[in-house]
Design a protein around this nucleic acid. Structure first.
Lengths: 236, 236
DNA sequence: TTTCATTTGTCCGTATGTATC
DNA sequence: CGATACATACGGACAAATGAA
């Protein structure tokens, strides 16, 4: 219930339906026909995504977050679904698509993933408007994701997982760092070996905080910036 | 109320008082003498810091987050209070401490801070075990922080602000990027001009989401990594 | 400055649903 | 299957901040 209401509120905000303030809790209660606690729970969700400022005695004000950098990734919107601002024509080219065992994968060892775990491996170049913007290696545990096809990874993979296996991201751990490009990585991205680029490693968890996906993405644009919003539960 | 309980729970977890599971909600209700809603609210706070996994029908399990990198910053603990793992002997050396107008500061313009706003400016080198680990420029709006002394910035500045002006961080916006060092920056840090390093820009908000501090820190260690945890409100 | 209605923040009790064991 | 434990929702009460009268 409150999840659906939260989604609708978020849509209403991004659609520009509410420009400066949210309706009062009382009005939202009437509109959705639910109790105050439920409305407040929904608002909590929206607030945590950084879309709202809340002022006791006054109301909920819409936050117009400004990602000044042209190429910016918003990490606080949805765990596991980084959003590029002005993401036009996102395409990707698959470099590798196979199965592997976690024990043989450096990234998996780094995150202490069970070595025996079997995973789908997807390595791909991501393009934006025809230009490479990231080299990404991602892994999906077959224990949670029993089947994966080239079709499903070419379309929105998280949508596919939600529809097919009822797997959604509930929590995620993000690690930002800087890596020096190996020659093969540099070649794929059209950069020079030894160049340094921002790297985002990510662990995604589903219901009951079961790990189902982990990935590492190297971003081609040296001027890329990553945005993250952090909000405490209440404002007082 | 639930804030205090959350703090106590967090302490109990970090103290190792609870190693694998939290007591049940019923037991926590009895222990703290509060209602279930209040306990759950407190648990929400703990959960959002990534310290818990919650499993319906089973209980709350403690998450032993592992920051593998030796030098890692945890951005999800407390907004505005990045924690360095194994932070031994943190000291700092003040490079600049004066007042300025936001309009004259590049960082302020970047974040659309009111140009007329007066700010305290603190530029300093931060040391860990005697070695430079960051060059930080931070600004405090005098409208919220009317007074700042060298004493107060040498000790824990956020503690000082909480005690003196009742100013605490309620929300923050973080921007991670990579910057190329200017010669003066490189000199201060003992690095080469042209070197690239991770940079964290941060906006900190207090009650009612009033901006009171913004800062930019360049980290000396090329292998530094930044951790961030993101959790949805419920696990289902 | 004071008062007062509005609006959000906190807390309580209760009931029912759903996952786990 | 039953007991336990977390998830969701409702309704009510009072506190605290805001803003206008």
């Amino acid at each position: 219930m409150y999840h659906e209401i939260a989604d609708q509120l978020i849509q209403a905000i991004t659609n520009g339906q509410f420009t400066s303030k949210l309706p009062t809790e009382a009005k939202l209660m009437a509109r959705f026909g639910v109790s105050r606690n439920t409305i407040r729970r929904a608002i909590d969700v929206v607030y945590q995504q950084g879309l709202l400022r809340r002022v006791q005695g006054s109301g909920y004000y819409i936050n117009h977050v400004q990602l000044n950098s042209e190429h910016a990734v918003n990490l606080s919107v949805g765990a596991g679904k980084p959003l590029i601002k002005n993401a036009h024509h996102p395409t990707s080219e698959i470099v590798t698509f196979d199965k592997a065992t976690a024990g043989t994968i450096a990234l998996a060892k780094q995150f202490n993933v069970e070595p025996d775990a079997e995973v789908y491996r997807v390595i791909r170049l991501r393009y934006m408007d025809g230009a490479v913007y990231a080299l990404e290696e991602s892994y999906y545990l077959t224990s949670v994701v029993p089947f994966l096809s080239t079709d499903s990874i070419n379309s929105s993979i998280f949508d596919f997982l939600a529809e097919t296996f009822n797997v959604t991201v509930v929590a995620s751990d993000d690690y930002m760092s800087m890596t020096t490009l190996e020659s093969d990585q540099a070649n794929l991205m059209g950069l020079e070996p030894g160049d340094q680029r921002l790297t985002l490693a990510q662990m995604n968890y589903t219901k009951n905080n079961t790990l189902f996906n982990f990935s590492k993405a190297i971003y081609a644009d040296a001027k890329m910036s990553f945005y993250f919003h952090s909000a405490h539960l209440s404002s007082n």
